[in-house]
Design a protein around this nucleic acid. Structure first.
Length: 730
DNA sequence: ACTACGAGACTTTTT
DNA sequence: GTCTCGTAGT
């Protein structure tokens, strides 16, 4: 059989990966090595050569964006319809699975999905009813405990609890699951754990999917957590094959449970004969790659790879040292101007930083300079307050047991139902183990508040009735008209945005339906032999829309397509590329972040983070750091990042202050410490006979009592009395 | 039921 | 420094 023509142009490793015979495979795909291309071509190749039908493919990604991109590229390669294909995020696919088999998973047909916010609200509410001290057991920590254990595949009963504290956590975890079950809601981790347990328990179902999914493909494998790995294993074994693509050097999500170790485990457990490495980079110039290679070589426990390019070395990296964070920002603004003069588009330039707090100074400088910019991160469409309120109305219409939704909007807009009334309702609900809604229904309270509650219940019910046979966008519109949310937010004259967002929600619903008609065939019809609810199916599109809202919170910042500089954290930049990249704040304590010192493998992860940042750049890469920085309302003095020393000097051009850059340092009034005729200044580099080299970051006292705080190379800082410490300037 | 003030946090984040 | 959250006061 002739090979499909689209294979032309692949390099030999890519070709090998794409055309591999039916077997499990591990592809270590370096940054810019054409990873997504290989993944999509592999699918196209399998289908084109009749090794599998589209329905036999399961492809998993981490983000909706990646899933969309894969589908888009796939339909460009092949004239097939992507309808029957299972391409999506772990959570999206689990949702699909659970919707299809909700009975077997003992979930209501219209189960709702809790996002993190919602989940935290449930935890708080629960702890209140259980009367658990939230100082001793901070809700955030409880939430993390629950998620962490779910991601390890553990139910409350399986958690090891050697001490009092953990036992209490375990109790809350168990109560939380009970509560969620009663309300018919499911959190993100639950989506995975529940479908994992479903497949584990239900042999015929498992068998069905084993038969079906002949080829499973996984993107960003290094980001999988334990449960996701087990889920894949359960879905593939025995006989199925997994095509895993990942890069251990780009593993930067350990803090949320990702285990790059899954790559090694996978190679072993799935008998991967030889690992295919994609090392040819099609993105960056040579110097940039060499800097990245050398930096990452300082990590141990790597699968090991070295990026190379057929392109030239290009220009050298530039490193700039600033006196203050403002100077740093000014420098970057000037450099950006130079680049745009040379014809680089603004949106092909990125300013990256370790922590969001750093964007402020940069934004200020950009704003003053009149450069347009866009900051990624921040609130997303479906996470906005007013949208959450509107969604709560819809949720309550779909599922009246949803206490979270009930509580959220029972008094929005204000209708005279205060904390007092709610408490009474909650007490009834707790006693009879029923939802707030049922409590309100069954035990009507007397008085004005009771009337208000009744009116509320009736309002929602009549909404539900009037929406019954309407198409989804009309339902949303109808809800907005009758809920008085619009008038409520009209009073907030400060933000007309909120009104606009609410109206936008109708458009979102319209867009969702249009999209669903293309890609989301009614799985229930195709897949599920077992689930045919007659009572509630007319609300299926509403439930699907609500799931969509939770699973895909919407664009981070709806960039209106205009040319603007891109500001984001290094994490957010993963997977992207730019002609020119600035990485700012390369200081010890910031990058690597000081909190990383506490964590096992923390420094290595920070190094990988910088590796990711560096490999975003195609042509121009500028690193910068500042001697001083305003952080948490305090001036902090930092030493350059240790990572800078790990980049070979011959690749770097060091920039110094230029004459036209106003030194603002005088304004920050360096404080001095004097002792025996010697003067020490904040920011000055010094040497200590015992602790080594460091920098003075603070001083206090005077005369014989003068002390200075010195931050040493290992990250520690110490207060030293000048009388005793033998400090010498370096 | 709504506003105002103060305490405390504050790495990274997708689903 | 600035934002969020929770409580106390009106």
């Amino acid at each position: 059989m002739p090979l499909p023509s689209f294979l032309a142009g692949l390099n030999s490793q890519q070709h090998e990966a794409v055309t591999l015979a039916r077997q499990s495979a591990l592809i270590v795909a370096g940054a810019g090595s054409g990873k997504t291309r290989v993944l999509t071509m592999r699918i196209a190749y399998l289908i084109q050569t009749d090794q599998v039908s589209p329905a036999g493919i399961l492809a998993v990604t981490f983000t909706n964006k990646a899933a969309r991109e894969m589908l888009a590229r796939l339909s460009a390669l092949l004239p097939i319809n992507t309808r029957g294909m299972w391409v999506g995020t772990f959570h999206g696919l689990c949702n699909r699975l659970l919707r299809t088999h909700h009975r077997e998973a003992s979930l209501p047909a219209l189960f709702q999905i809790l996002d993190s916010q919602d989940q935290l609200a449930v935890v708080k509410r629960l702890m209140k009813t259980l009367q658990i001290d939230d100082d001793k057991y901070p809700p955030k920590q409880v939430q993390h405990f629950i998620n962490h254990h779910k991601e390890e595949g553990q139910r409350a009963a399986q958690v090891e609890a050697p001490d009092r504290f953990t036992q209490q956590m375990q109790v809350i975890y168990a109560a939380y699951d009970t509560q969620c079950h009663r309300e018919g809601v499911v959190d993100f981790a639950e989506l995975l754990l529940r479908s994992y347990e479903l497949l584990q328990r239900n042999e015929s179902l498992r068998h069905h999917y084993h038969q079906r999914f002949q080829h499973i493909l996984v993107d960003e494998f290094q980001d999988t957590n334990r449960l996701q790995y087990l889920w894949l294993k359960l879905l593939a074994n025995p006989g199925g094959t997994i095509f895993a693509v990942g890069d251990d050097d780009q593993s930067i999500y350990a803090f949320r449970g990702a285990q790059a170790r899954n790559m090694q485990d996978f190679a072993q457990e799935f008998d991967v004969g030889h690992v295919i490495k994609l090392e040819q980079n099609y993105r960056s110039h040579g110097n940039i790659l060499e800097a990245a290679n050398t930096l990452i070589s300082h990590n141990t426990d790597r699968l090991g790879k070295n990026l190379w390019t057929a392109d030239g070395n290009g220009e050298r990296l530039r490193v700039f040292e600033a006196a203050t964070d403002r100077d740093e920002a000014t420098f970057i603004v000037n450099e950006v101007r130079t680049l745009t003069r040379d014809g680089v588009r603004l949106d092909d330039i990125a300013l990256l930083y370790r922590a969001n707090a750093q964007s402020r100074v940069l934004e200020h400088a950009l704003f003053s300079a009149g450069l347009s910019y866009r900051v990624y991160g921040g609130q997303r469409f479906f996470e906005r307050k007013e949208i959450k309120d509107a969604l709560a109305y819809l949720r309550l219409m779909a599922n009246s047991n949803d206490d979270g939704a009930f509580q959220r909007i029972v008094n929005v807009p204000p209708r005279g139902i205060g904390a007092r009334t709610l408490e009474q309702l909650a007490a009834v609900a707790r006693q009879q183990v029923i939802s707030l809604w049922s409590a309100a229904q069954r035990c009507p309270l007397s008085g004005r508040a009771g009337q208000a509650v009744n009116r509320f219940i009736q309002g929602i019910e009549s909404l539900r009735d009037s929406c019954r046979d309407l198409p989804l966008p009309k339902q949303v519109d109808n809800m907005l008209m009758h809920s008085e949310l619009l008038t409520h937010y009209q009073k907030d004259k400060q933000d007309a945005d909120r009104l606009q967002n609410l109206n936008e929600l109708v458009n979102a619903a319209t867009a969702f339906i249009a999209e669903a008609d293309n890609h989301w065939p009614d799985e229930a019809k195709i897949e599920a032999p077992s689930s045919t609810d007659s009572d509630q199916t007319d609300n299926a599109s509403l439930a699907a829309f609500l799931a969509h809202a939770a699973l895909e919170a919407g664009e981070h910042q709806a960039g209106s397509g205009q040319d603007a500089l891109q500001l984001m954290t290094v994490h957010a930049a993963k997977g992207l590329e730019f002609n020119a990249v600035f990485i700012s704040g390369l200081e010890d304590g910031l990058f690597p972040h000081e909190n990383s010192r506490m964590e096992a493998d923390g420094l290595a992860e920070e190094r990988r983070l910088l590796y990711v940042a560096i490999t975003r750049a195609r042509r121009h890469l500028t690193l910068s750091f500042s001697q001083s920085r305003m952080l948490h309302g305090q001036m902090r003095y930092n030493v350059p990042s240790r990572f800078l020393e790990e980049i070979p000097a011959n690749l770097v051009e060091t920039l110094s202050y230029t004459a036209d850059l106003p030194r603002q340092k005088a304004k920050s009034a360096p404080r001095y410490a004097e002792m025996a005729g010697q003067t020490f200044r904040i920011g000055q580099n010094v040497h200590h006979p015992k602790f080594g080299d460091g920098m003075i970051i603070d001083c206090e006292g005077g005369g014989d009592d003068t002390r200075v705080q010195v931050k040493f190379g290992n990250g520690d800082s110490k207060w030293l009395a000048l009388t005793y410490a033998k400090l010498t300037p370096t």
